[in-house]
């Protein structure tokens, strides 16, 4: 995935069963952000793999004051890339199990 300067990781082990998972997001490279960024630390949140879209979560982060509006797309992309990887891993897991 492209290096957006924003890192998203699983905040808990993925049991491949729940649609809602805990994710943790933090900024690794503030220079890659367009807007001013105040170092808040890591932001943990829950995300529903089936019902939610990364853009909505990114927008909520902006509205909560974590990021500037101009970085909504960057944050959304970082979440989308991680979510895609989690979904891919789950599908692979299921196909291996048969």
């Amino acid at each position: 995935a492209e290096d957006t300067g924003v890192r998203v990781e699983l905040a808990e082990e993925d049991d491949c069963k729940k649609s809602s998972i805990a994710l943790k997001l933090w900024v690794e490279d503030p220079k890659k952000l367009k807007g001013k960024y105040k170092d808040n630390g890591a932001i943990e949140f829950s995300y529903d793999l089936e019902k939610e879209v990364p853009e909505d979560v990114a927008q909520e982060m902006v509205e909560s004051g974590f990021f500037h509006e101009s970085d909504t797309k960057t944050v959304a992309k970082s979440i989308r890339d991680r979510v895609a990887l989690i979904k891919w891993r789950r599908e692979r897991n299921w196909s291996v199990k048969g």
């Binding site: 933090w26 630390g41 890591a42 943990e44 909520e60 982060m61 509205e63 909560s64 974590f66």
Partner: peptide, 27 residues
Amino acid sequence: SSISQVVHSAGRRFIVSPVPESRLQEK
């Protein structure tokens, strides 16, 4: 420690905590 919580009006909860040093050194 410095853990805080922000609840968005849509109901989502954001828990903010320091980034673990091990994570920062990963890259």
